[in-house]
């Protein structure tokens, strides 16, 4: 299904970094599925197809072999899987869950995954969200839907089994991806990140 014409909303951007303090990069085409259904009903299918039955607690994730299940709501999970495996997984889930009240939607191209790494990554994020992203409060494996800049997104700290090498992942709707990218660069200026100019040419200053 890979098509050379497929472009991510951030195709014009390349990784920005300020050394070990903070690095911003896109995880292009990371597979994302929304799975709605009662956790007890979908757990057996999840265990079979992703290797994990899903997180036991709210606002947590469970990862195994590069496949992660994120808690989004009481009856809603996101499945984050390697690029181009999501279509097959969605099909398998649908057939495995036949007869169970459920709902699977491929949202790979709807959300963009931006990864943050580095010793100051949480300080960069903390400038943009009211959520407490300090590593003590937001531990590895945690998930939080929150407000990021002017947009809404999902913050995630991927655990080892997710096979993602970023300390923080921000899921943001694709139309706001470029906005958030430039906002992250602006938030990282304190740590030596170079500013990025938004496609629309707008300028802003973060309150300091």
């Amino acid at each position: 299904m890979s098509d050379a014409r497929r472009r991510s909303p951030l195709h014009g951007r390349s990784e920005i970094s300020s050394g070990e303090a903070a690095t911003v990069r896109e995880h292009a085409f990371l597979g994302k599925l929304v799975l709605r259904g009662a956790p007890g009903d979908i757990a057996p299918a999840l265990r079979e197809l992703t290797g994990t039955a899903g997180p036991e607690d709210a606002c947590r994730s469970a990862s195994s072999n590069g496949r992660s299940v994120l808690w989004i709501g009481p009856d809603e999970h996101w499945l984050v899987v390697p690029a181009e495996t999501e279509i097959e997984l969605a099909r398998d889930l649908d057939s495995r869950l036949a007869g169970v009240r459920h709902h699977v939607v491929d949202v790979t191209d709807y959300h963009v995954a931006i990864g943050l790494s580095g010793t100051k990554a949480w300080e960069v994020l903390a400038k943009l969200t009211p959520f407490d992203v300090h590593p003590k409060a937001f531990a590895v494996g945690a998930v939080a839907g929150t407000v990021i800049g002017r947009g809404q997104g999902v913050l995630w700290r991927p655990a080892e089994g997710s096979a993602l090498d970023s300390d923080y992942i921000v899921f943001i709707r694709s139309s706001m991806a470029d906005y958030l990218w430039c906002l992250l660069a602006e938030a990282g200026r304190q740590f030596g990140m170079t500013p990025e100019t938004p496609i629309g040419g707008e300028t802003w200053r973060l309150a300091r």
Binding site: A58, C59, G73, P74, P130, F131, A144, G145, T146, V147
Partner: peptide, 10 residues
């Protein structure tokens, strides 16, 4: 009731 304490902005 599901997520715990959060800021009003959410």
């Amino acid at each position: 009731p599901y997520c715990g304490e959060r800021d009003q902005a959410e």
